[in-house]
Simulated scan of single mutants.
Amino acid sequence: MRTLILALSALALAGSAAFADPIADRQAIMKANGKAVGAIAPMVKGEKPFDAAVVLDALKTLSEDAQKIDVAALFPEGTDKGDTEASPKIWEDMAGFQAKVEKFRADTAAAVAAAPADLDALKVEFGKVAANCGGCHETFRIKKS
């Protein structure tokens, strides 16, 4: 009986994975990234006071989300169509896109490890992370109105 329950559970999990929506999944990651950047950017701009706890939490979110970006799973063939801002350039240069993702992973992990303790340190670390965002969006994103 236990084997039957485990087998049915495995089938249920496999079936639900088949219905995963890579476009929605990657949009959820980007939305979380936008929220994390939105917590940090006003500090860098001097619009909000520096808060080390908020900074570290946001950097951890960015780093954790970077680890979730599985290019093969989130950008399979055919997902350049539909409600997406993903540029066809992703599929034309998958290796270049993967390299951007890996750099984002490395820089967000380094920013978390640095744990910026003041605004000047934040500006250095956040500058590296934000450059990744901007560079990738310029090449691999189509901004829809």
Rank of each mutant, 00 (worst) to 15 (best):
V129W: 01
A110W: 09
A20W: 11
L8W: 06
S9G: 15
Q67N: 08
A53I: 04
A10Y: 07
S16A: 13
W91P: 06
A32D: 11
A99N: 03
V101I: 10
V55E: 09
K60W: 06
M30A: 13
K81T: 08
I29M: 09
E92M: 05
G82R: 03
P88V: 07
Q67T: 06
S87Q: 08
D65Y: 11
E102W: 02
M30H: 09
F126E: 11
E125T: 08
A24Q: 11
A73V: 00
I5W: 08
V44A: 15
P116Q: 01
F75L: 09
L4Q: 14
A114I: 04
A17I: 05
Q98D: 06
I40V: 13
M30D: 11
P88S: 04
I40Q: 12
V44N: 15
P22D: 09
D70T: 05
A86C: 05
A17Q: 14
V124H: 11
P76W: 04
A17K: 12
L122G: 06
A73K: 15
V124T: 05
A18W: 15
P22M: 14
G134L: 07
T108W: 01
A86Q: 08
I40W: 00
G34T: 06
N33A: 10
L8M: 14
A130P: 05
G46P: 13
A24H: 11
R105Q: 10
T61F: 01
A10D: 11
K103T: 10
A106R: 00
L122H: 07
D70F: 00
A113P: 00
K100H: 07
K100E: 05
A114W: 12
K100G: 00
A7P: 02
D107H: 00
K123I: 01
W91Q: 05
